[in-house]
Design a protein around this nucleic acid. Structure first.
Lengths: 264, 264
DNA sequence: TTTGCGTGTGAAAAACCCGTGAACGAGCGT
DNA sequence: ACGCTCGTTCACGGGTTTTTCACACGCAAA
């Protein structure tokens, strides 16, 4: 897990300067966005900060600490709340937790533990909200929705099958990057590609068909001869607009019949 | 109501009989379903228990406690994990929390606080669900009442059995989202799906029957071939009205963006 | 230009998935 | 014990997806 993935937007309400100093160091070095406050603030301000978590010393909020806690917990859904206070009784801790606090830490405490607990609270919250990692990814006119196993253009589904979708998803994960055939096969099919297997090509064709029929002005998948394929949305150069090749020219094509529908 | 709303399915892994005795009393009087274990169990067993939370004493699991913790946290999504252990260092606590524990309590501890912390851990995930569950949810003509384990159309009950209802509830919790067969099975049945098991299909059919007989103008459950099912109320196209008998009509995923989900 | 190999294409074959009806058995109240 | 409901399992059939094949075409090296 990277630094960024763990990054947290945090507000701290406390008056203990020694504690704040140490904590701030840690927050900075961890790259967390944070804001230090010395007193309670209205709930809507907290909402405006778009916080992931709030760390408060109940005693710093004043006599209405409990009320404040309850109000914030009730009115800022999705905010992780941790109380960090000196000397507390079991009854107080239970009360705080029941009022909506997600964790209760007793001072003195190690800043690293505080951060780990904040992470744990935020992690839990995110896990509840975000099902997997998937909100619509947009490339040109194409919208890829992992939660639907489907791609859309202008809100209309392309009708991709499972494999088709997996292939498209794989390619679109790294736009502009060429992926080798072998790697594609390995990742989508799950096992090594047999020699002479053309499955990838076939599925690329199906994908291109469905892409083109729904989004004719764009080319999404490019072939790299001898290597593999690359996803990279490119606006197609409309031939009818500039330097039109005479349409009649196409009819003069001699022998090769493009659609030899008859065989045998 | 409060009692019920707070009810939790909990498993405890510990060997401290004195602690267990006291805790069990509290659990019983609170009406929590619980199971006491004395050693680590495989993850899939934990899944099968459909727990909300797990309370473990790392030392009771043996030398592989950390590994166990990490494995459970990784493989049982949505399970709240609390560690309750005597004598721990900051480093240990941080490690445990980073490995996936949601809270870390030091013995000796008051059982009431333990329960409050368990509640806090379970709360967020559950609140989202319970909020949906508390108010009757309405989709098209269909009304889903979790408190009755039943669904209604025009005030009339569909006569769903327990499994049928659970399946419908699961699907309807995330309208518009495709849920994989495996995931359905895991969430409703509680254990991993055996290869070739058709239970899901059978129950989908029963659901569709009851849905259609009570609400014939709507289609609620859509099949995604090779993947799973999606709940998404759609007005059915009346065949008597007009229409060419469009043969290949399969994926009619509509344009409107039906994501009631939160934030980015 | 010619040649060789890799890719695009259409269609048929194979494999797979799902809807459906029905049989079986466990649990439960009568 | 009886009948009932509910959940599970099986087999069949139709439909969809995936694989395979044969051939045409295109690109690059000789």
């Amino acid at each position: 897990m990277t630094e960024q993935a763990r990054a947290v937007r945090l507000a701290v309400i406390d008056t203990d300067t020694a504690f704040l100093t140490v904590l701030q160091n840690r927050l900075d070095s961890a790259g967390w966005q944070h804001r230090l406050l010395t007193e309670g603030v209205p709930s809507d301000e907290l909402v405006a900060m778009k916080l992931n978590a709030l760390l408060i010393d109940i005693s710093a909020v004043g006599p209405n600490g409990w009320e404040f806690l309850e109000r914030v917990a009730g009115s800022v859904p999705g905010l992780g709340i941790l109380v960090c206070t000196a000397q507390s009784t079991v009854a107080q801790r239970v009360r705080g937790l029941r009022l909506g606090a997600d964790d209760w830490i007793s001072k003195p405490c190690h800043p690293e533990e505080v951060m780990a607990r904040i992470e744990a609270v935020v992690r839990r919250r995110k896990r509840a909200e975000v099902r997997l990692n998937a909100w619509p990814v947009l490339h040109a006119e194409l919208e890829i929705r992992s939660d639907q196993y489907q791609a859309f253009v202008g809100g209309q589904a392309l009708g991709l099958t499972r494999r088709e979708f997996e292939l498209l998803e794989l390619l679109a994960q790294v736009p502009g990057q060429v992926i080798e055939r072998e790697e594609i096969y390995q990742k989508v099919w799950g096992y090594a590609m047999a020699h002479g297997d053309r499955s990838v090509d076939v599925f690329i064709r199906k994908l291109r068909q469905k892409l083109q029929s729904h989004s004719p002005d764009w080319r999404y998948i490019h072939t790299h001869f001898g290597i593999g394929y690359r996803f990279d949305p490119e606006r197609v150069h409309d031939p009818a607009e500039s330097d039109a090749p005479a349409p009649g020219e196409q009819f003069t094509s001699p022998s090769p019949d493009l659609h030899p529908t008859v065989t045998t």
